[in-house]
């Protein structure tokens, strides 16, 4: 790695970057995917997103007031948690679900550990997994895309898991989001736009998302349904929450490794776990579990991938 740290004599100029600015930038980069979700699944998903965000912010403020800490509801981190949680919900959820999920994500996923920067696990995914374990009925009821009468349909991954053949959706359709799924995960195009923005601005690095997606693609290609090297890797990459998870949740600063070496290990680990859960696990989709498990492994990855201090052996 090139040495980018140039220490010159004062006066120094601050770049203007701050945690809260980065948080709001990530929020902005997620807007296209949200708009796409609302267009594809109808207004119900807009209410779910708004409820998720508002209750996350309220939960953060209330808990900080209760524990007499500094109230930081404007730093965007609670907003982002609520937004990501809502993106991980099916479009037609009862309205109390995002509220309960956001509260749990902020309370148990974040504030219990001491707030922003202290949490071991990604709070939004903690919320999602809690909802998934508590109310699987609501969390696995998906609606048909571009059909506002809320006809239920399973996700392509779920159909594959049950061994059924689903009505064939072209790769272009999958890329644009014409499938059943969670609100924010379906439109790959919009997600990639946001991800490109974050990558170009340098808010996230490519190491985690690229190794993550590549590993899932490679693994699902090798262990295909009709023997080795016959898998439909593009189908697996375009389906489920992989793109959303890889670019926006696995790259969370707090819960991922610090060095690029560690990030590559982290990405490969996420990819392996996701592919294993999808191919042989009990659930059709494994992105959230994979990222949470690797979150737990992040400290030990950091420990073994520390950068060598210049001048030492």
């Amino acid at each position: 790695m090139k040495n980018r740290l140039i220490v010159s004599v004062s006066p120094h100029l601050h770049k203007g970057e701050s945690t809260s600015r980065i948080m709001w930038m990530v929020v902005i980069s997620l807007v296209p995917a949200g708009i796409a979700g609302v267009v594809i699944f109808g207004l119900n998903s807009l209410w779910a997103i708004m409820l998720g965000v508002i209750s996350a912010v309220i939960a953060e403020g209330a808990l900080q007031a209760l524990t007499r800490r500094k109230i930081t509801i404007l730093d965007g981190s609670a907003f982002l948690t609520g937004l990501l949680l809502a993106y991980n919900l099916p479009p037609k959820v009862p309205f109390w679900l995002p509220v309960v999920g956001s509260f749990f994500a902020i309370a148990i996923g974040k504030q219990v550990f001491g707030g922003l920067g202290q949490n071991i696990f990604n709070p939004a995914l903690v919320g999602r997994v809690f909802l998934m374990a508590s109310w699987p009925k609501y969390m696995t009821e998906f609606t048909k895309p571009l059909n506002y009468d809320a006809i239920t349909s399973a996700t392509p991954l779920a159909l594959i898991k049950e061994g059924k053949v689903f009505e064939n959706i072209s790769y272009l359709g999958l890329f644009l989001g014409k499938r059943g799924g969670c609100i924010g995960e379906v439109c790959i195009l919009a997600l990639l736009l946001g991800a490109l923005f974050l990558l170009l601005k340098g808010y996230i690095s490519w190491h985690i998302p690229v190794t993550y997606i590549f590993t899932v693609g490679l693994f699902t290609y090798i262990f295909g349904p009709k023997g080795l090297f016959s898998g439909d890797w593009l189908f697996h990459v375009l389906n489920g929450g992989l793109i959303l998870g890889a670019f926006f949740m696995a790259t969370d600063y707090v819960t991922s490794p610090l060095t690029w070496k560690g990030q590559i290990v982290f990405g490969i680990g996420c990819g392996l776990l996701t592919a294993i859960i999808r191919l042989w696990g009990g659930y059709p989709e494994g992105v959230s579990y994979a990222i949470l498990m690797m979150n737990g492994a992040a400290p030990i990855i950091d420990r073994y991938t520390r950068n060598r201090i210049y001048g030492t052996k």
């Binding site: 148990i108 219990v112 809690f130 374990a133 508590s134 109310w135 699987p136």
Partner: peptide, 22 residues
């Protein structure tokens, strides 16, 4: 009442005991 299924699972026990200890 829509029961919070996770509370019947082992993870629910860990959550409740942890919160009560705190």
């Amino acid at each position: 009442f829509n029961p919070v299924l996770v509370m019947s699972m082992p993870s629910g026990a860990l959550l409740i005991i942890g919160l009560l200890l705190g």
